[in-house]
Each structure stands twice: as C-alpha cells, then as structure tokens.
Design a protein around this nucleic acid. Structure first.
Length: 468
RNA sequence: GGGUCCGUAGGGUAGCUUGGUCGAUCCUUUGGGCUUUGGGAGCCUGAGACUCCGGUUCAAAUCCGGGCGGACCCA
C-alpha cells in the first residue's frame, strides 16, 4: 500500500461503504454496505456494554449556559462548537450547541437523578452523532465534522475507588471489543496537556495505521469530582452526609471503523473480519448454458443450509462472467467465497477461496459437515487477520535510548517509539516541539536511567509517534 | 497558526503555459442489442462533464478576484 490516503479513499468508494461527496466539508453518507458493517460493529460493542450498562438517549442540543458551566471543559471545545442561533425567523434568546460531546447534556440530569448512595452507581451509554467544527483537513471516518457514530459511556460512583475500578472495566471492555474486531492497539496514559478537558486523567487506545501514523481509537477518562462539583451531583451517604460523586466516561467513534478498514485491507481492497462482515460467505455459481438448473439447484440448497445455521451468506446469480464477480466481491472484502460449477458437481466438491490469503481449497461436499467446514474457515480467517494485524503493530513499535534515535526512527520508520522519560510537562512539550512528534502517553514500567530528552531521572516509559 | 498546489461526465484523466482549431481527449462507468460464462470477454448502438459567483475580452475550460470543495507541507 504505497499511498494510504489514496487507498483509504478508494476503498470507501469501491467497497461501497461511504459516499464522501456530501456537499458539506467533513460530512459523509453511510451507504448500505458501510452501514451494515457499522451496525455489526455496534452490536458487538453493545453486547459487551450491556453486561453492566444500560442504553439511554439524550437530546442533541445543549443550552449555552450548561455548556459554559465547566470552564476547563468548555475551553477544550469552544473553538469547534456548532451553534443553533435561530428558530425559524427569530433569534433564540439562548443559543443552543450541537453536542460536541455529551457531558454537559447528561450531567445536569444526573444531578436530578442522584439523591442517595442507593441511586449509585449509574452506568449508562448512548450511541449518537456529535459535531465538531473542524477547520483542518477532514477525512471520512477519521477527522469529521459530524461524528455519526459516537458511543459514549458515562458512570457515576460513590467512591474514588469505584471510579478507578470502572476505568479498568472500560479498558477491559474496549480490549475485548478490539480483540473481537482483530484491531491491534497500544494503551497509554495521555500526558497532562492532552487529557480530556476537565478530567483527572485519560487512558487511550492507539492503533498504528499502514502509513506509520497512529490513530486514537478509544479513550477512557477518570473525571474525578470535577464535573460533580460543577453540575452539583451529590448524594447522601449512609452516614447522612452529602458527598460529591466520582465519575468516569469513555468513548469510541467512527474511527473504529477506519481502524478496521486500515488494519486488514490489502492491495485488492477491503478485507472484513467475519464477525462484522455484511456477508460472511459469497456463493458464485458457475453457470453454463446447458447446466444452469443443476448448478443453481445445488447452490440454492447450499445457501439455505448455511443460512439456517446462522451464517450470513449471499449468492451472486447475476448474468456476468465469474471473473468479474470475483473481483467485485474481493473489493468488497467478503471473507469467504464458495464456487460451484459443473465439474464440482461431478466430483462432489465445492471450491472455497479465502479473501485474506487467497488460499483455494477443493472440499468434499457433504451436507452434514459443510457448515462446520465453513465455520472453521471463517474462524481461522479471524485468527489469521488478528495475528497479522498484531504483528504489524508489534513490528512498528520500537524502543530507543536517545533523542537522536527517536527522531530518526519516527521519521524513517513511523510507528510508535518508546523511550525513558521524566514525565515533566515542560520537558514533554519541549520534546514535541523540537522533534515534531506527539507524545501519546506513558506506560508504567520499571524504568531506570535518564530521561531521553532532559537527562533527568526517568520515571516512565513514554510512547511517541506521529498522529492523525 | 503559517504556506504550497488543485477543482473537466458517477470515478480517473488530456486540454490551460501562448484565450479562438473544444461541436472537449482517453480509460472506466452506464442504457439497449447480439454473443458468452472455471479470474475483469468481444462486437454494434446510445447516455454522461468544463465547481460556483463576479470581472477582463469581439471571444474564457483556459486570464484575474472571491466563495465553496479537495490534496499536501511546515509549526
């Protein structure tokens, strides 16, 4: 993949995922095929969240007075808020923001809901669209003005410790989620100057894209009591005293789908993991003039068997040459193709071709075992995709000892570079500016020696890269 | 935040420097017909574009200004 930007753009179009030509900068249309993937991705996530959380839906508009309440928070977003200022012909007496994120829409309500420790914890999530007035270059799914798929979880707890535990819950859910999608990640604690505005700290998931830059694909925030104080979220503890609640929030967006596409795609186009593929199997009947009925009878039956066994399958009966169909379905990323032609009927075999590695196999056909065979193949596709993606992330993660190496590695190889770091904000910002890189964050590790930049005592392992 | 470049059918492009030959090139896409079908077949016949607004000019895809949209570089 020589040029990731171009490749990504082409895949969205050729795999019929999105139409980026909508006449507003940074806003695109989900096409049926893309939307189906999105749906499958979301249900994978929601299944995990639903174990402990409940789904809710808050309004999209936020009154200015609420949005402005938390000063640090609003400062982080003020330059990119869309405003509704008129209703019909009249100016509104209070302008309304299109949510850039939902803390200020949810927390005034939380304040009403929380009375006693009995009401806690609250653990809710919603999947909504959010708006950010991006002035930089936008790119579908990666940097957009309307985030169409923003899944955000918000929790309220009685104690600091419970909030800490919830952070871990969030991280674990995301780990499992990304694992199911075979998306690799590196987790780190964002530096002070890059944490979520208003939070105590931010844990983040980053994936290395094919061009070596990293993409933030998920974040988990411990909000402490900052928002509770601002929005007056208090409860009466069992001793009858009033206390501020401890909160967390965490979120994912459209970027997960960008990561999914980028992690598995190849020169031929999209490769979708079976877990979220709109069609897991595409059946191509090879039809000649005189045997169409026979072949179709067979493939119809095969389709039915797979379908009733919970496999998402489709048959392409269009009057096109088979080769053309192969190309089309490969571009669209369908994990497994099954071909059946006259020769196969004769030999009682079917042909299976894996999208991920192109491997072609002639399998003896037996109605009783075909489902297992297909499921087995889909399974190994998933595992191989994951392996391949994980390897890439690992190979692209380098460890260095000097700033010189750091700079060279980032510029020549891209990826994530790790080094020893003191953890000081001044030193970190200095490093970002001097070398034109971004500090993703830190990982706790047994670190000995000197900070790679300032030479002071090193306290952390720092992750550095170029970012989207 | 600063800078560079770009905008021609659904997608990708030629033409722009030096205005007229453009009734706009080629590939792809696409409607109809014939013929075919184990890796993008072929033939016939149709369809489809100069980003928008303003300016210069006898004449603008081509030159100038602005809007909108897009790509990239630096910080």
């Amino acid at each position: 993949m020589k040029n990731f930007s171009e490749w990504f753009h082409n895949v969205l179009e050729e795999a019929e995922l999105m139409d980026a030509r909508y006449p507003i900068k940074g806003m695109s249309v989900w096409l049926p095929r893309g939307f189906q993937i999105r749906k499958n991705v979301l249900s994978t996530l929601e299944e995990l969240l639903d174990e402990e959380h409940e789904e809710v839906l808050f309004p999209m508009l936020i009154p200015e007075s609420e949005l402005a309440k938390e000063a640090i928070h609003v400062k982080g977003f003020e330059e990119e808020v869309y405003w509704v200022t008129r209703g019909g012909l009249r100016d509104l007496n209070e302008q309304l923001a299109l949510r850039p994120t939902s803390e200020t829409s949810m927390y005034p309500m939380f304040s009403l809901w929380v009375r006693s420790h009995i009401d806690l914890p609250i653990k809710v999530y919603q999947t909504v669209n959010t708006f950010r007035y991006e002035t930089k270059h936008t790119r579908p799914l990666i940097r957009v003005r309307e985030i169409t798929t923003f899944n955000e979880t918000h929790t309220v707890h009685a104690t600091q410790q419970e909030a800490e535990e919830e952070v871990q819950v969030g991280i674990n859910i995301y780990k499992e989620f990304f694992d199911e999608l075979a998306i690799p990640y590196s987790i780190s604690k964002r530096p002070e100057w890059d944490k979520f505005p208003g939070s105590k700290y931010t844990m983040a998931f980053d994936m290395i894209m094919p061009d070596g830059k990293t993409l933030q694909i998920g974040t988990v925030h411990n909000l402490g009591t900052t928002f509770a104080k601002t929005f007056d979220i208090k409860f009466e503890n069992d001793g009858g005293e009033h206390e501020y609640a401890h909160q967390t929030c965490y979120g994912l967006s459209d970027r997960v789908i960008a990561a999914l596409i980028a992690a598995h795609g190849d020169e031929k186009g999209l490769v979708i993991p079976p877990q979220v593929a709109p069609e897991q199997v595409i059946i191509i009947p090879i039809i000649f003039k005189d045997n169409a009925d026979e072949v179709l009878k067979f493939t119809d039956n095969l389709e039915e068997i797979l379908k009733t066994n919970g496999i998402r399958v489709k048959q392409d009966k269009r009057d096109l040459r088979p080769g053309k169909k192969y190309y089309e379905w490969e571009k669209r990323g369908v994990p497994l193709r099954i071909e059946v032609g006259p020769k196969d009927l004769e030999n009682n075999k079917v042909v299976t071709i894996r999208r991920d590695n192109g491997k072609k196999e002639f399998t003896d056909y037996d109605e009783a075992t075909i489902v297992d065979t297909v499921k087995g193949l889909l399974n190994s596709i998933t595992m191989d995709l994951k392996q391949r993606a994980d390897n890439f992330q690992e190979e692209k993660t380098y460890s260095v000892n000097t700033v010189d190496q750091l700079k060279k590695t980032i510029n020549k190889k891209g990826g994530i570079v790790t080094a020893n770091w003191c953890g000081d904000s001044e030193c970190g910002k200095d490093m970002e500016e001097k070398y034109g890189i971004d500090i993703l964050g830190t990982q706790d590790a047994d670190v000995e020696g000197e900070c790679v930049n300032c030479g002071g005592d090193a306290n952390y392992k720092v992750l550095v890269s170029k970012t989207y």
